[in-house]
Amino acid sequence: MSNILKRQGVATRWRRLSEADVDKAEHLYAQGWSSARIADLLKVDPETVRLRLRKRGVQMRDPHWRETLQNTSS
């Protein structure tokens, strides 16, 4: 289906992340950015970011890690 859309010149809503995009995502994630925030910046689905980071071997944080940090520092 995607090949037919491409031949017809139809723009799709999704795009692939380049290696440079994944490099940037990995750097931002290490700085504390969430995968959702990175996805917004790169204009892709958060699951795409998460999957590409995991494929790179990035250890993913618990989604509630900030809340945990705040509760332990009180």
Rank of each mutant, 00 (worst) to 15 (best):
R56L: 00
K6F: 08
M60P: 10
R7G: 07
V58S: 09
Q8N: 13
R52V: 05
P63S: 08
G9E: 00
R61W: 04
D21I: 15
K43N: 04
S74R: 13
W33E: 09
G9D: 02
S34A: 05
V22Q: 05
T72I: 15
A36G: 05
A25W: 00
L51M: 10
E67M: 15
Q59L: 09
R52Q: 07
L5H: 07
V44P: 00
H27L: 11
L17I: 14
L41K: 04
D62C: 03
K6G: 05
E26R: 13
G32M: 00
T48W: 04
Q59R: 06
D21P: 00
S18M: 07
K6Y: 07
P63W: 07
M60H: 03
I4T: 12
G57L: 01
G9L: 00
V49R: 00
Q8Y: 11
L42D: 00
T68M: 11
L5T: 04
L17N: 01
N3C: 11
H64S: 14
V44T: 05
E19R: 09
K43W: 06
A30G: 10
R54M: 08
N71I: 08
H64G: 13
T72D: 14
S73C: 07
W33G: 13
D62F: 02
V22M: 06
N71G: 09
R7W: 11
R61N: 06
R66N: 07
V58K: 12
R56E: 01
P46K: 03
S34C: 04
E26A: 04
V10P: 01
P63A: 04
L41C: 01
R52G: 02
E47A: 14
V10C: 08
R61S: 06
V22H: 02
T48D: 06
W33C: 08
A36E: 14
A36M: 11
S2Q: 13
R61D: 09
L42R: 01
R50F: 11
M60W: 03
A25E: 04
K55R: 11
A11D: 02
K43H: 11
R54T: 03
G9K: 08
W14R: 09
L69M: 14
D21C: 00
R61M: 01
S2V: 08
R66I: 00
R50D: 05
S74E: 15
A11H: 03
R54S: 04
T48Q: 06
R7H: 14
P46D: 09
A36I: 05
R13C: 14
M1C: 11
L28D: 06
D40Y: 13
A11G: 08
L51H: 09
K24M: 14
Y29T: 02
R56M: 02
M1V: 08
D62Q: 09
